[in-house]
């Protein structure tokens, strides 16, 4: 695999009123050619700072980075010729000019030969379903259309690498799905482009990115495929159970088991009680069931309150607490 983006000890420290504020600290990672790479982290994790350094908008204060084999500090022009950048802010257009006029301008600035500009504009507009809007003033486009045009703009010079910073932020679900399918199927799978997809929303990355880097406080917490990251987790598990039987006796029986970290009574009804049980090892689950059977209780229902999703992985790597409540809340939001 060819490493098309490589960051080595990349750091950025800002000076703010005489104080040094570290936004990114000694990060190391690489992105392979043709990969859909997710850059994930909560707000303030350093995602945008990294992207701005890799796209030459910001100078690193330490370390090095190469994009398409070019150094981001010493070979800025070559780096910029190799990339397209889309930010969540769709204000990258001259509102009074048409989509075509905007693209003509950016194409010229990106060294697209004059004779090829009309054809290239036609291609990118068609790709994003905007051919019918070619001669509409960009200020008359909807937010979703502007954002699609934004990606078309970034592709106008057919760069091998795309940086997409929350590109679906202002889109409705259908448009977002359309754009993500286009990125995955057309740009990555068909055209072999490398895409760095930045988001602070996990649902955006799951079942979409080949690999994900998890950032927190300007440092890399983990890098890998969602499956690889999941395998790094200890086999802890959190179950929510609704049982019939003597609550005090059941709780006592569970707490006596090796590998049970905690037992929390959530609610008690006339005949049923709800518990959260945190296990150090998910295999202890069978012993938990045995305690119910042995105490003449009955398991009414249960579910894993955690899961193997990226959310759990992030919670683990960023030190977030995993409880049934916040896991369920997050599930509802999805």
């Amino acid at each position: 695999m060819t490493e098309i983006i490589k960051a080595t000890n990349l750091s950025k420290t800002y000076q703010s009123r005489g104080k040094a504020v570290t936004a990114v600290s000694h990060i190391n990672f690489s992105v392979n050619q043709g990969e859909l790479f997710g850059l994930f982290g909560p707000n303030g994790a350093g995602k945008s700072t990294i992207v701005r350094m890799l796209t030459t908008l910001l100078a690193p204060t330490g370390g090095t980075a190469t994009v398409n084999g070019f150094d981001v500090v010493r070979q800025e022009m070559q780096v910029r010729a190799s990339i397209g950048l889309v930010t969540a802010d769709e204000r990258s257009f001259y509102g009074r000019l048409t989509a075509r006029q905007n693209l003509q301008f950016y194409a010229a600035m990106q060294n697209v030969p004059r004779g090829q500009i009309p054809q290239r504009i036609g291609e990118v507009l068609a790709l994003f379903g905007l051919s019918h809007k070619a001669d509409a003033a960009t200020q008359s486009l909807s937010t979703g259309q502007k954002q699609r045009l934004n990606i078309a703009r970034a592709l106008i010079h057919n760069p091998p690498i795309l940086f997409l910073d929350e590109p679906t932020k202002s889109m409705d679900v259908q448009t977002s799905d359309f754009v993500k399918a286009l990125i995955r199927d057309e740009l990555v799978n068909q055209q072999g482009k490398t895409v760095v997809f930045i988001s602070h929303e996990l649902y955006e990355m799951e079942n979409f990115c080949d690999r994900v880097i998890i950032l927190a406080n300007g440092t890399v917490q983990a890098v890998g495929t969602p499956a690889e990251l999941g395998a790094l987790l200890p086999r802890r598990a959190l179950f929510r159970l609704v049982v019939e039987g003597n609550p005090a006796a059941l709780a006592q029986g569970w707490q006596a088991l090796d590998g049970v970290e905690s037992v929390t009574e959530i609610s008690r009804g006339a005949t049923q009680t709800t518990f959260d049980i945190a296990l150090a090892d998910e295999r202890v689950w069978f012993a938990v069931l045995a305690v119910i059977e042995g105490g003449n209780g009955r398991l009414e229902s249960y579910h894993r309150a955690d899961d193997e999703s990226l959310r759990r992985i992030v919670a683990h790597f960023s030190g977030g607490e995993l409880t049934a409540e916040n896991a369920e809340d997050a599930e509802k939001k999805r």
Binding site: L57, M77, R80, G84, R91, S92, Y94, Q110, H157
Partner: peptide, 18 residues
């Protein structure tokens, strides 16, 4: 103000010209 300076600066155009 209109937010077009960043897209312009990530084009393959010398910064001074941009």
């Amino acid at each position: 103000l209109q937010g077009t300076i960043e897209p312009l600066l990530v084009t393959a155009t010398p910064v001074t010209l941009a």
